[in-house]
Structures are given as C-alpha cells and as structure tokens.
Design a protein around this nucleic acid. Structure first.
Lengths: 154, 154
DNA sequence: CCGGATCCGTTTCGATACTG
DNA sequence: CAGTATCGAAACGGATCCGG
C-alpha cells in the first residue's frame, strides 16, 4: 500500500518497530550471543541458543537484518559460510542488554552470588568499552575468555 | 485452560524466567506504562497501550505477578478497582527500560530530534532517581508532567 | 557439510462478546 | 471496572528436504 504509513505490524500492537526486536524471546538471545559470545554463523546460533528451530532462526535473522540491527556477508575464506555481524545500531543495544542481564542475574533464582553481580555492575563501563572495541576490530572471540572474570549471565 | 500454571515455558526455550518477561511485547509496554506514565488500573492499561485485548492484558498481568514484578491489591476507596504496583524487582528494571527507550528513540524512524535524545541521555540518572522516589512515595502521576521536558518516548 | 526452505501438527494470539 | 469465553488466525517447533 504505497502512501500508507500504517505498517500494521501484526494487528494493533502500538510498539515502535525497533522495540519489536526486543519484544521477542529469540531476537534478544541472538543479539546477546553475537555481542557477548561472538557467535557469527547459523549453526553456532542453533547450538548456542540451546534448541532454536532452523526455520525460526532464519526468520529472526532476516527480521533483524530488515530492522538494521545485523548484516550478513558471505564468508571470505569459505564461500558456504555466512557471517552475521552487528551493525552500529546493534552495538548501540549493548547498554540496554547489559542492564537487562544484570537485572536477570540479580533477580533470578539460582543466579550468581551477590559479589559477582556487584562486580558486573562495577565493570559495566569497561564491558561496554570492550564490546565497542571488539566491534571496531572485528574481533569475535567470546568476551569471557578475555578476562575470565566477567561471568556474564544468560 | 488459563489459570493452570504449567512451568514448562513453551518448549525448549533456554531463557531464564526473568528474561521471559522482557521477551514479550506487551509485558514491556505494561511495565513502561506503570513506570513512566503511572498507570495502575486495568482500564487505563487498555487505553494506554493503544489496543491490547482484555484477555491478553489479564494474562500478562497475571504472569507479571507470578514473576514477582508487580503486585495487585484491591482499591481502598472503590472495592471494584484493582491497583497494580511495581515491586522492587519491577523498579529495578528501570535502568534497562530507560536504555531501551533511549535506543528506540535514537534509531526509530520519525523519532524525536537529536537534541531531545541527548537531553534524555544526560538526564538519565535524574529520571532514574525520580522513578525510585515516586515508588517510595507511592506517587503515580505521570513522569512527564513533572518537568514537561523529558519527552520520554514509547 | 552449511544455510536455509517446506510441510504439518500444536500452541498461542487477538478481536469480539459476554459476565459478575 | 475487571476480567472470562469463544473461536478463527497466526506463530511456533520438529522433522525433513534442498541447493551450493
């Protein structure tokens, strides 16, 4: 419908397009895996997320691209592989995602001990800086292995 | 049947119970309305969220209670009315929610102009302090009316 | 092998109507 | 006002198949 500014997401949901990404279980996990664990490939997402169906995963990856949060490019060494990467918009989600993870860790049953949580909160800025640095340098190794002390939860 | 609490999330979703709240379009909007706009009653949620179905709203309010994010209590003046309020766990979501709103405002088409966004980011701590203060004092007037300058997006 | 697409039974959503 | 009941539509998830 050209000229119509009503995208009509699903039915009457008033949430903005960007926030739709967040309001989805899998999308948030995908972004977390990319940002924290450095996951890039289709298969790694399947194993990392602990059982997302391939059709759902493909659907979410496509929607995340449409939303401008990630991009996909053919692997340079292996033509078969596809590398997914966060865009600037995706990286900008880091502060919110980190707050979310801290909140979950703090309030979840069986979460990490309070000392670890306090460490996470203190290192908040350091973690964000590291995420941004990695993005600039295209470094995709998991965050945890860098210091061994961050214990980012999921 | 609604009312039977099956613990089995949906199928194999690995996300923690707390993060399930966030991975839902409506739950996030409900919390936002409570925190930013001071919404407390069933009917206000229906109008505020711009068209959430009553059965969905009831379901989400119940799940948020089960998750310990909100509580419900019968209205003191009017027995029919039910007042929903954020718990401490719910209030603790404020930093994450605010980051999310800033992110959405920044990256959404037709969002507020950059100057407003920069103001939001600068006032981040002030907004959080105000949310906490209101929660302590059971003040439920909308946040915007306080200063008229925060322009919190949705 | 990798990154999907297709088929299909099951679950959940959502609009409307209705009730205490 | 604060929810249920109902029912069609959509999304989900598992399994399997396909192109490169």
């Amino acid at each position: 419908m050209p000229g119509s500014s009503k995208l009509k997401h699903r039915s009457g949901c008033p949430v903005s397009k960007s926030l739709e990404i967040v309001g989805d279980r899998w999308s948030l996990l995908i972004i977390r895996d990319m940002m924290i664990r450095g996951v890039r490939n289709f298969k790694d997402f399947q194993q990392s997320g602990e059982g997302i169906a391939s059709n759902i995963l493909a659907d979410r990856l496509r929607k995340l691209q449409e939303a401008g949060v990630i991009t996909s490019e053919a692997g340079e060494t292996d033509g078969r592989k596809v590398n997914y990467r966060l865009t600037q918009k995706g990286i900008d989600l880091a502060p919110a995602l980190l707050e979310l993870l801290i909140w979950g860790a703090h309030h979840d049953d069986g979460g990490p001990p309070p000392a670890v949580i306090r460490t996470m909160m203190k290192q908040r800025e350091a973690i964000l800086a590291e995420v941004r640095r990695r993005w600039r340098n295209r470094d995709t190794t998991p965050l945890q292995s860098k210091t061994g002390e961050w214990h980012l939860p999921g």
